[in-house]
């Protein structure tokens, strides 16, 4: 096996074009290799020292998050916490402090796990990824990126360089909650992200909901915005919870049965919507919502 430590984006893209695979923190790749999921690739390019990948920039009404930004940085970045608290909730739930120190948003998104925590909030925030290869750049919506468990529509020579999120409108809020059996080193049994925009009277103008660990990929709840418009957040939470249980297509595995997941995704979707609406109304709910509202594992 060979490992090249890249110092520039061009160097990474050239390596990928020659058949190398990217490694950032290694929290999925190295563990997966030892668990026998997939051996380490013959040729790796380390992308964790390229500063272009570790920036969080605001450009033209969007934030561009470098794919190499770690979960620790996301959960502590004041702008992310203020504008995109749902994403900060997710980053704060991943693994443990050591996982968050080296694990990256790009790695989480491109690993394509249906249980990834950053996926659902990114969907509800309208994020797209920007993929670069030698001589080519394209933006892909998340719904077109994830094609199955561990699979994406990105070509092997493409690197996710940015995750791009539009600025949220006024009176909006977002949240991500997860059902978990323990407080750390946990993978979502189920999880839900929500974003909502409120009218001045507190009713819902629009909203999006996405679900974790109930389908082969992270999936957005269909027709959620239409179902919520004009409702109070309390009314909407009931409606959305029922829709989430209805639309979920979970499997049974060691973390939960399909019936348990189908029930609990409704509970989590309703709680995510409730927290997002309370944040949209100006209530300060700390990151992560799970800890602030006592959702998930007891201490």
């Amino acid at each position: 096996m060979s490992l090249t430590i890249a110092n520039s984006l061009d160097e990474i893209l050239t390596s990928l074009a020659a058949g190398a695979r990217p490694i950032a923190g290694g929290t999925d790749l190295v563990v997966g290799a030892r668990q026998g999921k997939a051996p380490l690739p013959d040729s790796l390019v380390a992308i964790d020292r390229v500063t272009a990948l570790s920036k969080i920039e605001t450009v033209n009404g969007q934030v561009r998050i470098g794919a190499g930004v770690t979960h620790s940085r996301l959960m502590n970045d004041p702008m992310i916490v203020e504008r995109y608290p749902g994403l900060a909730d997710a980053a704060a739930l991943i693994g443990s402090p050591s996982t968050r120190n080296v694990g990256t948003i790009g790695g989480n998104v491109m690993n394509g796990s249906p249980a990834m925590d950053t996926g659902a909030p990114l969907v509800t925030l309208g994020a797209v990824v920007e993929l670069h290869s030698v001589g080519s750049t394209r933006q892909v919506a998340l719904s077109d990126l994830w094609t199955g468990p561990g699979r994406t529509s990105a070509n092997p020579d493409e690197l996710c360089v940015y995750i791009i999120i539009p600025h949220p409108p006024a009176r909006s809020g977002s949240a991500y909650v997860r059902l978990e059996y323990r407080r750390a080193m946990e993978i979502a049994v189920v999880g839900a992200g929500a974003s909502v925009v409120l009218a001045e009277d507190g009713s819902i103008v629009s909203g999006r909901v996405a679900m974790t660990s109930v389908a082969p990929t992270i999936v957005e709840l269909a027709n959620a915005s239409d179902a919520m418009v004009g409702l109070s957040p309390v009314e909407a939470a009931t409606v959305i919870g029922a829709m989430a249980s209805d639309q979920a297509v979970p499997i049974s595995d060691l973390r939960g049965s399909d019936r348990y997941r189908r029930h609990t995704i409704g509970v989590m979707a309703a709680r995510a919507l409730d927290a997002a609406a309370r944040r949209a109304g100006g209530e300060p709910i700390g990151v992560p919502v799970n800890r602030s509202l006592g959702i998930g594992a007891a201490r």
Binding site: G25, G26, V30, Q35, S72, S96, S98, V102
Partner: peptide
């Protein structure tokens, strides 16, 4: 555990705790 779960292998890299079982030495 050699599986990034238990933390017995914790070291600091540039002052930050990292599971050394799941970090390539060459990195």
């Amino acid at each position: 555990c050699d599986d990034c779960e238990c933390g017995a292998c914790m070291v600091l890299i540039d002052g930050q705790p990292v599971n050394s079982c799941s970090y390539l030495a060459a990195q």
